[in-house]
């Protein structure tokens, strides 16, 4: 086909322009469908939750049914502790195994690790809760924050591993070679060049994992268990926001429903703030390099 025939064929051109605009509209529509639920959730929880929100909510313990007021201070602190424990387990294990799969990917073991990670990410969170129950709760003879954090940590591992691996693979081989050619050892190249270059992507992955873990209820049901009182010892049962929301939401009391909404709002807001904060702190003045 010569150039002329395309130029002289406006019908074809018209049709292609039409298809083009239809496809673009579909993409925009799909994009809207993605953000609508988030916006809806955000506004709905804000609307229902913010009215029950007051200083007491952040400073008071839950009150028994019938008593006005009370808050979820213990659950907020509990959630933070549980996520910290989970992060201490999930982030190092996830990042290191991601490095192993990406940088030393030729060994047989790494293909097993990769496969297992994919499977683990598909395991329902309640099963992971049962696992933590069997491994920690039964031997310790009691529910504990440790068991809850452990379950959250296991949940975080596959997400962190996968994203670390993907991000490291995006780092061009030429950068590794450039570093090695300077006489830099392999581990320093991995740590200072490869990881640093991929850091913003890896941090995003870690945030995703934290956000997911923060909202998990199922694995905490029979690990952290929940607690109506102050508890900061990690070998004791501990309250957590999602657990508290769950308990309050299924109760028949109007007062508790309002508290549950407030809890949901706080939970979403916390995840949101953590996201923004970490992005702000780790923002790279040389960003946009990947």
């Amino acid at each position: 086909m010569s150039k002329d025939s395309i130029l002289k064929n406006p019908k074809n051109l018209k049709r292609r322009k039409l298809i083009n605009s239809v496809m673009i509209s579909l993409c925009v529509l799909a994009g809207l469908v993605t953000i609508i639920p988030l916006i809806y959730i955000f506004f709905y929880t804000t609307q229902s939750g913010i009215s029950s929100l007051n200083v007491d909510f952040f400073t008071q313990l839950p009150k028994p049914v019938g008593e006005e007021g009370g808050g979820m201070a213990n659950a907020i602190v509990g959630s933070l502790i549980l996520i910290s424990i989970g992060g201490l387990i999930g982030i190092p294990v996830g990042v290191l195994s991601g490095i192993y799969i990406s940088e030393y990917s030729k060994s047989f073991l790494s293909s097993i690790v990769k496969f297992t990670t994919d499977i683990l990410s598909g395991v329902p969170s309640i099963i992971i809760g049962i696992f933590a129950y069997g491994v920690i709760v039964i031997p310790m003879q009691r529910f504990s924050a440790l068991a809850g954090g452990f379950a959250l940590g296991i949940l975080m591992i596959p997400t962190v591993t996968k994203i670390t691996e993907e991000m490291l693979k995006l780092v061009p081989m030429s950068l590794r070679e450039a570093s090695l050619a300077l006489g830099v050892s392999r581990w320093k190249t991995t740590l200072k060049i490869v990881l640093t270059t991929a850091s913003s992507g890896i941090i995003t992955g870690i945030l995703l994992a934290i956000a997911r873990a923060a909202g998990e209820t199922a694995p905490l049901l029979f690990t952290a268990f929940g607690n109506s009182f102050w508890q900061t010892k990690i070998d004791q049962p501990m309250a957590a926001l999602p657990l508290q929301i769950f308990t309050y939401a299924i109760s028949p009391y109007e007062d508790w429903h309002r508290q549950a909404w407030a809890g949901a709002f706080v939970l979403i807001f916390l995840v949101f703030v953590v996201n923004l904060l970490v992005r702000f702190v780790t923002r790279n003045k040389f960003s946009g390099n990947l």
């Binding site: 061009p172 030429s174 950068l175 070679e177 450039a178 570093s179 090695l180 050619a181 300077l182 006489g183 060049i193 640093t196 270059t197 850091s199 790279n284 040389f286 390099n289 990947l290």
Partner: peptide
């Protein structure tokens, strides 16, 4: 490699 340096085809400064 400290004694034998290398310059590559595509410029590859460390982007960060």
């Amino acid at each position: 490699r400290k004694k034998v340096g290398m310059v590559f085809q595509k410029p590859n400064p460390f982007p960060t």
